[in-house]
Each structure stands twice: as C-alpha cells, then as structure tokens.
C-alpha cells in the first residue's frame, strides 16, 4: 500500500523540508480526503440533511398549498404527532406494515432457501436456470406490478380464468381489491419479486460450506434430511438471520410494490404509502413527516442491530 521504503524516506525528507506540504502520510490523508469529500458532501446534502430536516418538519404545521409563502421554520408544535398517534388509521397501518414485512420476509427467504438447495449441485444448464430465476428481482417494478395486475384481473386475467374454468371457483376473485386477499396477494408478490435475493445470498453461503463435514456425516450413516437438519441448517442459520434482518428493513419500508398493486386500498395501507398519501393527496407535510419519522425510528433500531450482526459476519 505504501511506496517502497527508499522512496518514502526520500519523499518524506523532501516533504519535511518544503513547508506546507507535510509528510507522505499527511499528503496521503489529504489526497484521501480530497477524493472522498465530493461524495461525502453529496450524501450529506441529499441524504443526511434531508433526514434531519424531516425531524424539523414533523414538528411544524405546514401544508403543501402554503409551501411557497410560509416560512420553513415556524413555531414548533406537537400537533402532528398527536394527530398521527391519535388516529386509529395509523395503528392499523402499523400492524399491516408489520404483517406485510414479516410475511414477505419469511416467504421470500423460504422460497429462496428451497431454490438454493434445489440448484445446489452442478448440472448442465444450471447457470441459465439461475439467471432466469433472478429475473423477477431485476425487472422494473412498474412492469412487474402491471403484468401481475392484469394476470389477477377479475374480468379477463389468466388466474381467474383458470380458477373458474378448471379449478371450479364459483366466481372470480378480486385479488387486489378485497380484504384480506389483497394483503395476502401483495405478500405473495413480494415473495415472487424478492426470493431471488435470498436465493443468491444463501447460494453464496452454501458454496462456502466445507464439503468434508457433510461427507463425514454421510459416512456415519446420516440420511439426506438428517445431513440438512444437523449439518447444513446450523451453518446457514447466521446467514439467514442477517438476510431476514436485511429483507425486513427493505420490506418494512417498501413503497413501490404496494402503491402500484393496490394503491394502499383493501387493507394494504402500509405506512410508506400513508406517508405518500399525506404528502401528495392531503398536502399535509407535517403529518407526512411525523409518520416518516416513526418509520425512521423503527429503521434506526433495525440498522443498529444489522450493524452489530453483520460487522461480525462477512456475508454483508
């Protein structure tokens, strides 16, 4: 990492003599700071400051219509929090968010694990199958939600056609506009869209697992399910824990999928969609910020846990 000794000493001597330039070490840290600072400034201005500003906004009585005229730092008020915490809609929404995040996380990891185990050992065409399984994850969310919306459409969607004709359903199911089907459907969609992430993550861990352990167990007469239960599963557990945390963080805050599938209707009103609704439809900046802040608080706890976890674990 450092230049050869003779060079560094020479340079150091020269540097020491020329005032204002410092030693090689100092010059290195100056270069480092110069290279990283544009990014740090960008991130501070467009990510960190806005988040701090949300805190200020959450204590303001600010409406979108008055945005251009009103000052941005009015008298602080707790009204937004009183309103938000006082409304039953918020608590319902929090429960919905938790159900959605837990369900989506569990389903996508479960399917990802199954996929990783099925595709574990090499065969011809494995790479192609693997690439195909990753498509839901890379496809644009708007296109994916649109095609699912049409597939589940009660009038001419393929799912209802097959259901009523072949499976003997009495009538088409309105998957995206009825309780509690809508919530189950968005969880199912989340499973479809996110299982590739779990699949990749778990596959990477499986590849790192030493083959000798499993071989030894097999020699000792363990059956395949026993090998999985006692050898593979314990090795995967830390990875799955980190993965679950990561997926939970993202699913908990997911906006796009639900907004595009149901618009937050029929019992799928998660908090992120509520934040958007309060901001755009109602133009209530204060209440939107207050709810975003609640999301941030939950997130902060999860990220801290993740940081503790993942700092030890090399996966992330």
């Amino acid at each position: 990492m450092r230049p050869a000794v003779s060079e560094s000493r020479q340079a150091g001597d020269r540097e020491a003599r020329s005032p204002g330039r410092g030693t090689l070490r100092e010059r290195e840290s100056r270069t480092g700071l110069a290279l990283i600072s544009p990014t740090v400034v960008l991130v501070l201005v467009l990510v960190v400051l806005p988040i701090l500003w949300t805190v200020v906004l959450a204590f303001q009585d600010l409406k979108l219509i008055r945005l251009r005229t009103s000052g941005l730092f009015g008298t602080p008020t707790f009204e937004n929090f009183a309103d938000v915490f006082g409304s039953p809609g918020f608590w319902d929404s929090l429960v919905t968010t938790l159900v959605y995040a837990s369900g989506g996380t569990a389903a996508s990891i479960g399917l990802g694990l199954v996929a990783a185990l099925a595709l574990r050992h090499g065969f011809r065409g494995r790479m192609l199958i693997r690439a195909s399984l990753l498509l839901p994850y890379v496809a644009p969310v708007v296109a994916a939600t649109f095609v699912w919306g049409v597939m589940l459409n009660p009038q001419f969607g393929i799912v209802n056609e097959v259901g009523t004709r072949l499976l003997g359903w009495d009538e088409p199911i309105a998957f995206l506009s009825e309780r509690p089907t809508a919530l189950l459907t968005v969880i199912f969609f989340e499973m479809w869209r996110s299982f590739p992430f779990a699949f990749l993550f778990i596959t990477a861990r499986l590849q790192a697992a030493p083959a000798t352990l499993e071989e030894a167990a097999r020699v000792d007469g363990a059956t395949p399910t026993q090998v999985f239960r006692h050898i593979v599963w314990p090795q995967l557990l830390p990875t799955i824990a980190v993965l679950a945390l990561l997926r939970f963080i993202w699913t908990f805050n997911n906006f796009d999928d639900i907004y595009l599938l149901t618009g937050g209707g029929a019992g799928t009103d998660v908090i992120s969609v509520r934040v958007f609704e309060f901001l755009i439809s109602r133009g209530d900046i204060g209440a939107a910020s207050a709810q975003a802040l609640v999301l941030s608080a939950v997130l902060m706890v999860l990220v801290t846990v993740y940081y503790r976890f993942a700092a030890k674990d090399e996966v992330a």
């Binding site: 740090v40 990510v47 400051l49 806005p50 906004l57 906006f255 934040v275 900046i285 997130l299």
Partner: peptide, 29 residues
C-alpha cells in the same frame, strides 16, 4: 488505498445510506 482521518466513520455512513429506504427521503426532497 489511502489512510485518512474519518475513514471508518465514512464507511459506516455509506452503509447506513445504502440501507436507508427512499420513501424516507421523499418528503424533505
């Protein structure tokens, strides 16, 4: 490649940004 003050803190900041969902930035931005 380079050692400079705040190195570790900046890495942590970037990890936090990476985990931070965009809906939380929607309102202020």
């Amino acid at each position: 490649r380079l050692r400079f003050p705040g190195h570790r803190r900046i890495s942590v900041l970037f990890l936090a940004v990476y985990l931070f969902p965009s809906i939380l930035l929607a309102v202020p931005l």
